[in-house]
Lab assay of single mutants.
Amino acid sequence: EPREEEAEKYIKRANGDYDKAQELAKKDGNEEIAEAIKEYKKR
């Protein structure tokens, strides 16, 4: 799923820090991806 791939990219950029990844996504205006990262975190 493209959303998950995007989320993974942010998580990698944030060195595995989900909260930081979420912030990066929000900064880029990717609210949807920020949500996907939140879902990811719950797994």
Rank of each mutant, 00 (worst) to 15 (best):
Q22A: 14
A7F: 11
R3V: 13
N30P: 01
A7E: 05
A25S: 02
E1T: 14
D17Y: 01
R3Q: 12
N15S: 06
Y40S: 07
K42M: 09
K42L: 07
E5R: 13
K26F: 09
I33C: 05
K27M: 14
A25E: 00
Y10W: 03
K26D: 04
K38W: 06
A14L: 02
K27E: 12
K27V: 08
K41E: 08
E4M: 15
A21E: 00
D19H: 06
E23Y: 06
E31Y: 15
Q22C: 13
E8T: 06
R43T: 10
R43D: 06
K38D: 07
I33R: 01
K12A: 12
K41P: 04
A36Y: 15
E4P: 06
A14P: 00
Q22F: 15
I11D: 01
N30T: 03
Y18P: 02
A14D: 00
Y10C: 04
A21S: 01
K27H: 10
G29D: 05
E35F: 06
E32A: 12
E32I: 09
A25D: 00
K42H: 06
R3T: 13
Y10H: 03
I37H: 00
Y18G: 01
G16F: 10
D28Y: 04
K42G: 06
K20V: 12
E39Y: 05
E39L: 06
E5P: 09
A7W: 12
A14I: 01
K12G: 05
Y10I: 04
K9M: 10
K20Y: 12
Y40A: 13
N30V: 05
G16L: 02
D17A: 02
R43M: 10
R13S: 08
N15W: 07
R13Y: 08
A25N: 00
K26I: 14
A21I: 01
K26H: 09
A7V: 15
E39F: 04
A14T: 05
E6D: 10
I37Y: 00
L24A: 06
E23L: 09
R43L: 12
A34D: 02
E6L: 14
Q22Y: 15
K27I: 12
Y40H: 12
E1S: 14
D28C: 03
L24I: 05
Y40D: 05
I37V: 04
E23D: 09
A21G: 01
Y10A: 03
K27C: 10
A34L: 09
K26E: 09
N15V: 04
P2L: 14
N30Y: 12
K9N: 11
K38T: 05
I33F: 02
E1R: 14
K42S: 09
K42V: 06
E23W: 08
K38P: 03
R13G: 05
P2G: 14
E39D: 09
E8Q: 11
E35R: 11
I37A: 00
K20L: 15
A34V: 13
K9S: 11
K12I: 07
D19C: 13
G29E: 03
E5S: 14
K38S: 08
Q22N: 04
G29V: 01
